[in-house]
Design a protein around this nucleic acid. Structure first.
Lengths: 151, 151
DNA sequence: TAGACGTAGTTGACACTTCACCCAATGTCC
DNA sequence: GGACATTGGGTGAAGTGTCAACTACGTCTA
């Protein structure tokens, strides 16, 4: 059996740990300063990316890589807090839309600047452009391989 | 307000998404093929790293970067499944040890080879040694900065 | 040595995720 | 146009994580 070499371990562990740490910090920051969970924020950002501020459940689920059940539960909770509303789909009676509300829009707009600033402060500012390029390429390549595997 | 440049976005999004995807795949693999959750696996691996197969709750929590409460709940559940036992600490009556059982040992040993193989197949095989080095260095540097910030 | 403060771990309530299953609408193939 | 699989989404229960409060022990200091 082929175990990991020290360099492989170092890179793999570093990668995993870095994400845990950064994710934790950024998440707590969103929560405490803007009263929005990372999951809420992700949903809201994706909704504001569309011109109408609305998206099909499934498209949203694919974009966020969530299971449909998680999407359903989470949107129900967000709807309860007034950040989004559910809307039936006329073309396909099975389907439904998630639509961002004014409350939701206000929440993203309040949270986004601080979040971006934190990403910069905690991550981007400590990484060179060359490293960033390597990271981007590597990520895209590996994600591409993961996608191939499924098919 | 300074938004992210396209290259910054590409790297940041890629990084986050890569971790989500890889984590998801590896986690589901552990769960389905070895009947061990990623969290269980992490605990068991850390325990087998020590000669006695035992560690203080707090040390384990620090190593895994879990909150003490999560550790307490999770160990209770794992104990319920017979993978570990709780043991009182004689030197410090407040403290306690987590000790791996034979069942736990068998579980890691069954799961580890397949897991390592998957990390290789899904990640390491698609990344050059040079990229790996960049990733390791970058990760360690940024984690170091995160640690400084706290102090 | 009494009080104050810190540390190790626990607990319960609540929020979130997953799993397994349900249902209705749609597609497709004969 | 009827059988059958597929798709889009919902649901309840069980598993998991977080937060705040709590117990009990240890340590420091006046």
């Amino acid at each position: 059996m082929r175990w990991l070499t020290p360099e492989e371990q170092r890179a793999w562990r570093g990668f995993v740990r870095l994400h845990e740490r950064l994710g934790g910090r950024l998440g707590r920051l969103l929560q405490s300063e803007s009263n929005v969970s990372p999951a809420d924020f992700a949903v809201l950002v994706h909704l504001t990316d569309t011109p109408e501020g609305r998206q099909r459940y499934q498209d949203l689920a694919r974009a966020l890589e969530w299971e449909k059940s998680r999407m359903s539960h989470h949107i129900a909770r967000m709807a309860g807090r007034g950040m989004v509303v559910r809307e039936d789909c006329l073309e396909d009676a099975r389907g439904a839309f998630v639509v961002i509300t004014d409350v939701g829009r206000a929440a993203v707009e309040a949270a986004a600047p601080r979040h971006v600033e934190a990403v910069r402060e905690l991550f981007l500012d400590h990484v060179t452009p060359a490293e960033l390029r390597v990271l981007a390429e590597l990520s895209e390549r590996v994600i591409g391989k993961l996608d191939e595997d499924v098919s």
